[in-house]
Design a protein around this nucleic acid. Sequence first.
DNA 1: ATTTATATGATTGACTTCGATCATATAAAT
DNA 2: ATTTATATGATCGAAGTCAATCATATAAAT
Lengths: 258, 258
Amino acid sequence: MKVAYEVVKARRDQIAQLLAEHQYLPLAEVCARLGISEATARRDLTALERDHAITRTYGGAVGDYNRRFDSFRERLAQSADAKRRIAHAALDLIKPRMVVYLDGGTTVHAVADALATGGPRPLTVVTNNLMVAERLSDIEGIELNVLAGQYLRRQAVILGAKTQTSAKLWRYDLALFGAEAMTARGLWNTQADVVAVERTVAKSTKSTVFLVDASKLGASAPVFLLSWTDIDKLMTDASTDVLSHAGIVLPNRSLVTC
Amino acid sequence: MKVAYEVVKARRDQIAQLLAEHQYLPLAEVCARLGISEATARRDLTALERDHAITRTYGGAVGDYNRRFDSFRERLAQSADAKRRIAHAALDLIKPRMVVYLDGGTTVHAVADALATGGPRPLTVVTNNLMVAERLSDIEGIELNVLAGQYLRRQAVILGAKTQTSAKLWRYDLALFGAEAMTARGLWNTQADVVAVERTVAKSTKSTVFLVDASKLGASAPVFLLSWTDIDKLMTDASTDVLSHAGIVLPNRSLVTC
DNA sequence: ATTTATATGATTGACTTCGATCATATAAAT
DNA sequence: ATTTATATGATCGAAGTCAATCATATAAAT
């Protein structure tokens, strides 16, 4: 029997809501909860998928509500192995009771990943990256703080003038940064606001460490960040040979290759 | 054939990673991507589910990586209808170019929901609630800012001394708050640090508005927040009769019932 | 009031997935 | 070197899911 359009819409909204809450629901569950037949449930799910509200699966559907950070995640996959190795080396720098700043990039996110599964405790972690925040929140022994500022969902990062102001509220023992490019002159990044925050943090940290995988060698990025003399350590999977060939020569204690 | 345990573990980690990226993958896709048989894929998925890394579905699996804010979502469902009505009434208070503060509770989240689908633009929104932040980020005409501070994932909220400091970085035209209880004396909340932030914001806003559904009438909460004379408006679904019966009497222009 | 359009639920056959079982290959233990 | 343990892939019957089709009831249009 035909039914008022509003009734249909309300029901589909309810299904979308249900899926936002439960992430996944089998078809039978949808039928049971709404008291509708398989056929109607199927039709509703198909319609909702057409409107990009959910994703159908064989036997049910998943909600799209939480599909954020997608572009960030894609970048996470690049050079994932090198990033993981660098991150594990970086763990050695972190000691219990430190206040550690974790930068917004994907390489530094690997450190958060490593920290989540174990490492020195207790720790105070400060970050402007919300994926890092998610990863490390509610972990025993880690107090997680975020900076203030404008939230940019695509990059999962908090930026802006207020971010710099709030970055000054802490004193860091160690700051772990990423960068988009490294050349003989130093380290570069793509966004001016990102660099602004990084420089602000660099001024109030005891130790400044950069984690940069080899793919960033010879890459180019428009905004100059810091020169080699400004940093305490570079951790990379690029070999000393390749680095010096690119004109990057650092004292032994400032370079960790892995 | 038996295979080194590390190989198995690495493969399962890879599947979990893949699911974190794609949220949902059908079994056949897992087989294809890893070059393994259905049987092995099934066994891997079962093992991963046992470790609470993923959730199995009929025909595939979904990643658990993003299942956050769950307890907050549950509270969202309570009195959902009243919250929605109150939120829609609150929309009228918001005018283009305002700087609006949105509090951490579930009632205020309904305002974010309403704002997301339409309303006055442009707006500057400031919040300490990350689910509100998610909801309103990347929306044309809305600049979304978050406060600094310690991130408490269960409540999806940012709190602490630094939160108060960063709350003072803005001047608000309008602040929308929730509360856990209302009595003749005024409004109450459960957590001292939540109240601390709310009071800080209340001091730097032109207009202080509370959105409280009827279920909070007669409820009790330990921390006193503000008395009725301190606020500019109360929006509630409780009737004037019921309110006055509870000893709450407000001037007409300060009370919106819906 | 009559007609038209369509939302729903039931049915059916084709297709897919599942769990159990088994043979086999290889890592780990002895 | 030999034995033991187990990870893997193949197979198969059972159970579940899907898309298509159809009759029907009711909203919307006339």
